[in-house]
């Protein structure tokens, strides 16, 4: 068996191992996020809005409700983990981009690109869920407030990253320029994350306290949601990476076949 074929079979074995890990991560992530959804809907308390009820409502157990209850807040248990994971992926893309600029390896460029691809999917998820909440609570589909605006800029930067990649043909140049662009795009992630604290006039909801101020009934599903989504993102990232590696292998096998044809 030739070296090219032996290498191909070795790659297949490694890929098999990573596919199993990715699928396990996806299943665990699915379990955790399902647990998050079930807990959020059936166990987590509905938070009170600013609308005061006069006279207060009294439940059978003697609990007094003084404010109208805000069901839409339950979107928080899914929307926030998805948004946090999108930030993590964009930062990870920038880390791989820095590594690429330092070592000039094709592997780091591939990983950076994959992080961006998966990041874009999570950005779309954040945008969809956020927009639905905005429509219900603010009565409009879009508001140019600081968090939404900076997140929209992040979305455009990630799309521009892929436009840039398609615009450059030469592989090394493409990887170098994309790495620089990924780092620039990632600068917006911490800005978007922290903007609601930096600009107090922002109307976007924000946790005011450092300890979150959430009761265990709210904190447990929220944390499960974050870890679940991180596992889902890791699983998707690994599967996407495997697909990219498969495509590279097709190219190298084609090159080997052409070489044999020439002999």
């Amino acid at each position: 068996m030739s070296n090219a074929l032996e290498h191909s079979y070795n790659l297949a074995q490694t890929r098999q191992k990573w596919t199993t890990i990715a699928v396990i991560a996806l299943i665990l992530g699915l379990v955790l996020t399902t647990f998050d959804v079930i807990w959020a809907f059936f166990r987590a308390p509905i938070v009170a809005s600013d609308v005061v009820i006069d006279p207060p409502a009294v439940l059978e157990g003697g609990t007094v409700i003084t404010n109208q209850l805000l069901f839409s807040q339950k979107i928080f248990y899914f929307h926030v983990p998805v948004a946090i994971v999108s930030f993590v992926l964009i930062i990870a893309a920038a880390v791989y981009a820095v590594l690429h600029l330092m070592h000039h390896s094709a592997e780091t460029d591939l990983r950076s690109k994959t992080c961006m691809e998966v990041g874009l999917v999570f950005i779309i998820g954040t945008m969809i869920s956020g927009d639905l909440w905005t429509r219900h609570d603010w009565g409009v589909w879009w508001v140019w407030e600081p968090r939404l605006t900076t997140y929209f800029i992040l979305t455009l930067l990630v799309i521009a990253y892929f436009v840039l990649r398609t615009a450059i043909d030469e592989p090394e140049r493409k990887a170098r320029f994309s790495a620089v662009f990924a780092i620039i795009a990632a600068i917006d992630a911490p800005i978007s994350f922290g903007i609601t604290r930096l600009i107090p006039s922002s109307i976007h909801p924000v946790l005011e306290r450092g300890d979150s101020g959430m009761s265990p009934d709210m904190l447990i599903p929220f944390v499960c949601g974050i870890f679940g989504m991180l596992l889902v993102a890791f699983g998707i990232f690994r599967l996407r990476l495997l697909l990219q590696e498969q495509k590279l292998e097709v190219e190298s096998l084609k090159a080997r076949l052409e070489e044999l044809d020439r002999q």
Binding site: L69, L70, F71, F78, S129, R135
Partner: peptide, 25 residues
């Protein structure tokens, strides 16, 4: 109870948006 119904009135209105967000993600 009418007051209790008012306290919970957001649930029915918000449910399609919340469920829609979960499903669409």
């Amino acid at each position: 109870d009418e007051i209790l119904a008012y306290a919970y009135s957001d649930v029915i209105v918000a449910a399609p948006y919340v469920i829609g967000a979960y499903v669409l993600i």
